[in-house]
């Protein structure tokens, strides 16, 4: 599966549009991580627990989007956008969406 966030797959000009696909996740870390993050933020710096959370969440959102595209028989997703929002303390939502296409 090819994923790009530009309107095309470079070098492949024509494709058939299969519609929009998306995937989202809401993830949270266990309380221990929250306490560690609280301690860490005394001196500032990267909150590794939350960073990992973000990476995992993004990977699984993209995976869900890819699954949806595969079900449509697509071989690429173009114009992909990512959005994040913080729903509640220690949890964050990640949404990935794009256009599924079949390359010719």
């Amino acid at each position: 599966m090819i994923i790009t966030n530009i309107e095309n797959v470079p070098g492949r000009e024509s494709y058939e549009n299969l519609g929009m696909v998306m995937g989202s996740t809401v993830l949270s870390k266990h309380v221990g991580r929250d306490i560690a993050a609280g301690l860490k933020s005394i001196f500032g710096g990267e909150l590794k627990g939350y960073s990992e959370l973000l990476v995992e969440g993004r990977a699984s959102a993209i995976e869900r989007m890819t699954d949806e595209a595969k079900a449509l028989g697509a071989d690429a997703i173009v114009n992909v956008r990512l959005t994040t929002s913080s729903i509640t303390q220690g949890a964050s939502e990640l949404l990935a969406y794009g256009t599924a296409v079949k390359l010719k």
Binding site: I3, S41, F43, G44, L47, L54
Partner: peptide, 22 residues
């Protein structure tokens, strides 16, 4: 412009906090 890479789209992220003393 050759298309390379595993998926084509690359990402980077970070969560950074400022310190409590500030």
């Amino acid at each position: 412009n050759m298309f390379t890479g595993m998926s084509g789209m690359f990402t980077g992220s970070v969560v950074l906090s400022h310190d409590g003393f500030r």
